[in-house]
Design a protein around this nucleic acid. Structure first.
Length: 280
DNA sequence: AGCCAGGAGATTT
DNA sequence: AAATCTCATGGC
């Protein structure tokens, strides 16, 4: 999780994560830590008042969702054992789960602003977006940010987003998505209720600015479909090219053939290949 | 300097 | 329908 120094939604030190988590009632600053095979420890730093059971539940649920703690990755590791491409990655990545983006708005914004630009620049855009339109609190001389609120972005003009180096089109996409979420046309609950992944993808792709890549990215990291698959993802193609020692990036047909073996866990295979780039 | 980046929509064929 | 062009800015 600490692959990017510009990440401002959480900090990591001494294998401990510090982040703001928003419940319906309040915003809570927590630290999350854990040792191998032991339950995660969550500690509240702010606010000082006692949290209600309801608030605590929301925080626990958020963290469980964020780290995908309820998915059984056993079947995925069966696949990995028999997959020459994934097997070498396992020693370094063992236990890794798909780090999610529980908020639909955040997931879609992050995907849209990352379209067709290099990751370093994407992180910069995200940081500038958050630090311009999000909210922060300071604790022990450290500033912690929350992602911009749907209502705040829905009322912006494209010109206001251009100031954080967003392109005009991305500005339009993001504001439009914010508007649809703000007026309840679009919500995570509604999407999940569709329950058929192909139909969910279709309804996402119907939204301007969301193509097959963004839809699958969102299904993978927010809607938690373990089989979502951004086939044409450049990072994925480059990872396959690298780990298979190919001269060129694999074709779509090759990717589809390769991914047959990952059926049920294509999102996990994708995530492991992405992260494989960082560890091998 | 030039290619390309965790794409999508519009236009042309 | 499928191929091609345009958007647009920065990293390397």
């Amino acid at each position: 999780m600490n692959r990017d120094e510009q990440e401002c939604l959480y900090t990591i030190d001494q294998k401990q994560i510090t982040t703001l988590i928003e419940t319906e009632e309040t915003t809570v600053l927590v630290t999350i830590s854990g040792k191998n095979n032991q339950p995660l420890k969550v500690k509240k730093l702010l606010p000082q008042k006692q949290l209600t059971i309801h608030e605590k539940e929301q925080i626990v649920n958020y963290i469980a969702d964020w780290f995908d703690l309820t998915t059984d990755i056993g079947p995925f590791y069966k696949i990995v054992e028999n997959d020459p491409l994934l097997r070498p990655l396992l020693p370094s990545l063992y236990g890794l789960r798909i780090i999610g983006v529980p908020s639909l708005f955040e997931a879609l914004c992050w995907a849209v602003l990352g379209q067709q630009i290099n990751l370093a620049f994407a992180y910069r855009l995200k940081r500038d977006f958050i630090q311009t339109f999000g909210h922060s609190i300071t604790y022990n001389n450290e500033t912690y940010w929350t992602f911009p609120k749907v209502q705040d972005i829905a009322v912006l003009t494209t010109e206001q987003l251009l100031q954080v180096k967003m392109t005009k089109r991305k500005s339009e996409y993001i504001i439009n998505i914010a508007k649809q979420i703000a007026n309840k046309e679009l919500s995570k609950t509604k999407l999940l209720q569709i329950n058929d992944m192909d139909q969910i993808e279709k309804s996402l792709v119907n939204i301007r600015g969301i193509g097959p890549w963004t839809a699958n990215y969102c299904m993978m990291r927010c809607l938690r479909d373990p089989n979502a698959f951004p086939v044409a993802d450049v990072g994925l193609l480059n990872a396959v090219k690298r780990f298979k020692n190919l001269a060129e990036k694999p074709s779509k047909a090759e990717m589809l053939e390769l991914s047959k073996n990952w059926t049920g866990y294509k999102a996990y295979a994708t995530f492991y290949l992405w992260r494989g780039n960082n560890v091998l």
